[in-house]
Design a protein around this nucleic acid. Structure first.
Lengths: 155, 155
DNA sequence: TGACAATAAGTGTTGTAACACTTAATATTA
DNA sequence: TAATATTAAGTGTTACAACACTTATTGTCA
């Protein structure tokens, strides 16, 4: 590691606690990855959030998922899943139908075009992940994943 | 760790690679902390981004910092630092003056009110960090910080 | 069964993020 | 030193995020 976070952000003072440093480290690192992912997806005309929805719907298969179910599976919470889906419908990547017995639900499904786009993106995203995180190696990646899980599993 | 990320997001399939799982873990964990921080700051009427600017300006002291310098020290990059500072000026937390020899620069400085607000927030944020990350303990926090630094230091 | 609570989705509105473009001031150099 | 490049800041515009509020449908139970 050639440069500390303190230098990276040109901070004059050291962090007041390991907790504070970890919080900033996490935010900073996530922002770096976010940025890189956004750049990766830009040529394809979708955002990371939209990509997340498409993957969720692919995972659900032909059965689809209702709005709130999509919302609850998002990596980062979104307060307006309706209009997020609106845009994907507009782009022709998702359909939406009120076709369950309980007519309150609206089922979202991936279209053919959405599936095609995802298939095109799969290798791009895999290569991106490799480029962004591959240098850590399996062992440290596992350690990182476990530590992050512990962060989220606070009592 | 009682629940896996896969369960947390109700994913039907396991992650295709450790890199993919690490990327999602990072985004997810950062989103959790972001959310908690936003809740913490909400009663005080500022966002995490604004809080970040205030801390940067406090670190700079009475000398202040020019717009781009503030922008470059942000934890997450912002494309519109001008209007971000606009709002802080409007809130009375920051001043802005074109007072250097090089008249292209505009120097931003924390006001008395800004310093007071930060002083009020310091214990709140410290307690929040403790609550969100304290359960890891110093050793694992250090391991996490180091791993995150390695992620950012990709070749 | 009729009133009321609960749930799912959508809407209205405001503020902010993102991106490209413009203006102003200083450096550079032919 | 005049023309051009570079740097700093600001502006215009679009789309998206966030939050509170409304509507529609179903569940619950006196």
């Amino acid at each position: 590691m050639s440069i500390t976070l303190q230098e990276e952000l040109r901070q004059s003072k050291p962090f007041p606690s390991p907790e504070a440093e970890a919080a900033v480290s996490l935010a900073r690192t996530a922002a770096c990855l976010d940025h890189a992912t956004a750049e990766m997806l830009r040529p394809y005309g979708i955002t990371a959030t939209q990509y997340n929805v498409l993957r969720i719907l692919r995972g659900a298969g032909p059965q689809g998922l209702c709005r709130n179910e999509v919302r609850d599976r998002m990596v980062a919470p979104v307060p307006d899943a309706t209009r997020l889906l609106d845009r994907l419908v507009f782009l022709g990547l998702v359909t939406r139908d009120r076709d369950t017995p309980d007519r309150r639900y609206v089922t979202a499904r991936l279209t053919e075009a959405g599936a095609t786009l995802l298939a095109e993106l799969d290798p791009v995203v895999a290569a991106g992940n490799q480029r962004l995180l591959g240098h850590l190696g399996a062992e440290r990646l596992r350690a990182l994943i476990d530590l992050l899980a512990e962060v989220r599993a606070r009592p």
